[in-house]
Design a protein around this nucleic acid. Sequence first.
DNA 1: AGCACGCCGACT
DNA 2: GTCGGCGTGCTC
Length: 836
Amino acid sequence: MELFEQPGTESRITLFAELMLPIPVPKLFTYRVPLPLNDKIMVGQRAIVPFGDRKILTGVVVSVTDQPPKQYEAKYILELLDDFPSVTELQFKLFQWMADYYLCTTGEVMNAALPSGLKLSSESMVQLNPAFNLEESDFDFSEKERMLLKRLVGESMEYSAISKFLGVKTVYSLLKSLVGKGAIILYEEVKEKYKPRTERRIRLTDVYAVASALEGLFETIGTKPKQEAIVLKYLQDVPVLSHAEANKHGLAHKQLMSDDTLSESSLRTLIKNGVFEEFEVVVSRFEEEPLPDQHIIQLSEEQHQAQQAILASFKEHSATLLQGVTGSGKTEIYINLIKQAIEGGSQVLYLLPEIALTTQIVQRLRKIFGTTMGVYHSKFSDNERVEVWNGILNGRFKFVVGVRSAIFLPFDNLGLIIVDEEHDASYKQQEPAPRYHARDVAVVMAQLHHAKVLLGSATPAVETYYQALQGKYGFVKLDKRFGEARLPTLVLADMGRERKQKTVKGEFSGLLLKSIGDALSKKEQVIVFQNRRGYSPMVNCEDCGWVPKCVNCAVSLTYHQYRHALVCHYCGYREALPQNCPTCSSTRLKTVGYGTEKLEEELMLHFPDARIQRMDLDTTRSKSGYESILDHFERGETDILVGTQMVTKGLDFDHVSLVGIFNADRMIHFPDFRSYERAYQLITQVSGRAGRREVPGTVVIQTSSPDHPLLVTILNHSMEKFYGDQLEDRRQHSYPPFSRLIDVTIKHVDKKVCREGADALFKLFRSAMPGTKLLGPGEPMVSKIRNQFLMSILVKIPRGSSELGALKQALMQCIQQLLKEKEHRNTRVIVDVDPV
DNA sequence: AGCACGCCGACT
DNA sequence: GTCGGCGTGCTC
C-alpha cells in the first residue's frame, strides 16, 4: 500500500511489516508496527524486533501492509533504527537473486551483506537481583550457585562468560533454578555497535568572542599567566577578530592543548568562568586528505588504444574482458575509466583481491580521487565499514575500492564495476553461505544498474575467456608490456637429469642456485615461490613409517619449526614434535618435503650473506606484517623473498631479475579439473614479477617432467594455445564453461551415517534430476575435518539448460527429503554452486 | 543460527 | 536419585 497518500494525516490503521532477519530460515517475518511509527516506517529501514523468547535482532523492512497475518499473532517492532532506508530496492533484488542462485536464504545474504555494525543484536545478561540476600534466603544453594552469586556482586555477566567461569557447557538449568529462588534477573542488553567518532572542541563563549570583551579579559587575567597563555594560543590558531564566524568552529581540544606547557586545569577554570565553552562534533574516521592532484595520466599508445576499445565495447556489451599481460599498465586505464564515470555522474566500484588491496594502491588512488573515494577492506574496523556504507547512501563517496564483500554496498547509481585480477579465487566466498563469486555477482549487479563491468586479468579464468570468445563479453587485449619491458625468459630446471648428474643440493637445482648467485652478485633481487607454508608438510619415522596425523582431521600434520610444533592447516590443532616415535620409539623422525620455512633455512646456508625474508600466512598474520615485508623488499633491504601465493600479487618491483618456482609438478598434477588452469595462472603471475624495466627477467621452473605439454605451452608464452587446449578438454569432459557445477557435501560425525546419507542422496538426485550428470558419492581429498566425516557429490548441469532453476529446486527438495529421515536428521548438507 | 525443552547415562 | 549431556523443533 502507498504510505504517503495522506500527507499530514496520521493513519490510525494498524500496519504490519515484513522483515528480513539475518538468520538461515527461508522466509520473512511479520511484525506489527507501533502506531507512532506508521508515518515513519519505510522499506529498507532497519528495525529492532524481539525474536524467540529472549533474543533481539535487527531486521530490514521489506514491505508494509495493513493485512494482519492469519496464522499467528504478530509481535511489535521495538524501534526503527534509521530515518531513511539503509538498504536499497536494488539490493533487495540482488539479495533475492543471490539466494535463488546460490541456494541459500535471503537472511544469509543479508548477514553477509550488512557490516556487523549495522546489525545490533542482544546479549543475554545475568544480574544479581537487588532485592536478594544470600544469608536471608530460605532456599538452599549448590556450591556452583554460590560461586556464581559471589562473582555477580556488582557486575553483570553474559551467558558465555558464566559457562566459562563455571566450566560447564549448559548454564541454562542452573540459571533457571537461580531465577526461581529470586536470586538473579535475566535481561537483554542491546549492543549498539556503531559509534560515530566525536571530537572535543573548544571555543569562546559568545560573550567573549568580541574584541572589546577580549581586551577586558586580558586585563583581568594578566596576573594569571597560565590562563593567558591558553587564550593567546587560541587566538593564534583561530582568527576570531578578523573572522567572527571562525569562533563557531572553535578549535579541537587536542590541538589547543598540543603544547604541553599549557595547563589543563587552567582551561577548566576558563570554562568555569564562562570564557570558553566545550562542545562535541561528529567527525569522520577517515582523515581529510589534501585536495586531489589533478594531473593527467599519460597513457602509452597501446594503453590509449585499449581504452578506446573498451569504451567501444561498452556500447555493445555490459561486460568486457581486458586481458593485459603483467606489467602492461592496466591500472592507468582503470583510473581513466573511473574518472570518466564519476564525471558522468555515476558511482564506481573497483574490486580487488584481498591481498592486492594494499596501502600503496590506496594511496595512489587517494591522490587522484581524494576523499570522494571510500575503501572497503576486511582489515578495517567495523565502524569504518559502516561509514563507507553510510557514505555511499548520503553521497559522500562516489567511488569505492574494496574486496569481495564491497559488492554489497548500497549503490543506487552504479555506472562502472571493475573486477581486477578477475581470475582470483578469493572472489569466491567459501564459508559460510552465501558461497558467492563476487565477479559473477558483479555482472548481475551491473545488469540491475544498467552499468558496465570491466574484468581485468593477465590470466583470465577459462570461463571468462570463453564468454569473451563467444562474444557474450567484449574482449580487449593489451599484450605489450609498458615501456620497453620485455617478457621474462622461462627456463626449466630438469630435476631428474640434475639428480643423475648430482647437481641437486637439497631441494635446489644447480641451475637455480647458480642463477640466484648470479643475480645476487649483480645486486638484483630474487623471488622464490613455493606454494606450501610451514617447514615441512610431513614428518615420518624412518624405522616404522609412522606419520603424525591430526586428531580431528584426516590429514598429516605440518611441521612448523619456528613454533616447534606440528600444526593442522585445517583445524589449527597443534602438538609438540615428539622426541621418539610413539609406535616404535625410534629417534629417527625425519621431515619430508619442503615448505617455505625450510626453503628459507636452506637458502640461508647457500647464501649466508643474503638478506632473506619469508612471506606466507605465518609471517603476515600480524596486522602490518604484509605491508612491512613488501616495504623492505621495495626499498631493496631484502635480497631474496621466499613465499607462497602471496608473492604472485601485490606490487610491481623494479629490481627483481629472477624468479624461482618450486614444485611446478605438484601444481600440475593436483587431482582437479582446474589444476592446469591454476598452474598456468600461478606460474604466469609469478613470472610477471621478474624483470620490469630494461633488464629482461629470468624464471627458473624446477620440474621432474620437463616435457609436460603444459610447461611447453607456458614456456612458449602461447597463451591462446593454452586456452584452446583447456576449452577442448573441458568440452570433452563437460566441465565449466560447458556445464554448471554444484558441489554437494554431506557431513556427519559418524562415518557410516555420512556414507549412507551420501548414497541415499545420490539416489534421490538420480531420480529427481534427469538430464544431469552425477559424480560420486566419494570422499573428498580431506575426508574428515574437525571430527566431521565428509562425502561429496558433484552435479553437472549441461550448459544452457533451460531447466537450471527447476533442477536447483529439485536438488534442494532432495536434501529436504533426506533430512526428514530419522537417521539423517543430524546430517549437515552444504551446497556450493559454481565451486572453484 | 541460537535457544529452550525434553529425554537419557554417570556421578553423589 | 540428580546433574549435565545432547537431540529436536521453533522462531513472526
